[in-house]
């Protein structure tokens, strides 16, 4: 662990919002029958949160659970605890088809923070998503396209948004976010 490095350690930018790479984050892809009671229980234990509804995420500072597709969840944990949690999941789900894999190192995580309207604007410059408060807010989780790469994001509160993408395109994603957040770029829309 001592040598583990996130994709862009310390990358930061300040414009109409603050953009920063959020460092190493434990992430588990869990695939299985999301309606199954055993699985729900195991997820609650691994992610410290209840099973989220369709396109929802239950998150807090320590981690949480996000709904990825009808048979897939993304479980967030502290980076160091991923293997242990996967071990727990494997034990709890031993009797049913499922897949629980560590994807922490395959991803990059960025955080946008600042005024809520500005945070929404930065995303709305890059993603074809309705970012108005009526359509998206804390508790929601959206997988989409950020310019030319896949991404997923959620708001932990009105002024904070976290966005996940693949690790290999971390620099591209950071450049996108930095550009969209550049000074003078406020749209004053939301």
């Amino acid at each position: 662990m001592s040598d583990a490095a996130s994709a862009l350690p310390g990358a930061e930018f300040s414009g109409i919002v603050k953009v920063r790479e959020a460092g190493l984050q434990g992430m588990i892809t869990l695939r299985g029958d999301l309606a199954d009671a055993t699985l729900k229980k195991a997820v609650a234990k691994a992610g410290g949160q209840d099973m989220p509804g369709q396109r929802k995420a239950n998150m807090d500072e320590q981690g949480g659970v996000a709904w990825m597709s009808p048979d897939e969840l993304l479980i967030l944990t502290p980076y160091d605890e991923v293997e242990a949690r996967i071990g727990d999941l494997a034990k709890a789900l031993a009797k049913q088809p499922h897949m629980a894999v560590n994807v922490s190192d395959a991803r990059a995580l960025f955080e946008l923070s600042g005024e809520g309207a500005r945070v929404r604007e930065v995303i709305a410059k890059l993603c074809p998503v309705d970012m108005s408060a009526d359509a998206f807010g804390p508790g929601d989780f959206r997988r989409t396209r950020m310019a030319q790469v896949p991404a997923a994001f959620w708001m932990s509160d009105e002024g904070t948004l976290r966005i996940v993408c693949f690790r290999s395109v971390a620099q591209y994603a950071f450049d996108l976010l930095r550009g969209a957040a550049a000074k003078g770029g406020a749209v004053d829309y939301f």
Partner: peptide, 15 residues
């Protein structure tokens, strides 16, 4: 739009 210069297209990098 943003797709110019270093943002023209995603460039994937290994660790």
């Amino acid at each position: 739009g943003e797709a110019r210069a270093e943002r023209f297209q995603p460039l994937r990098r290994t660790p």
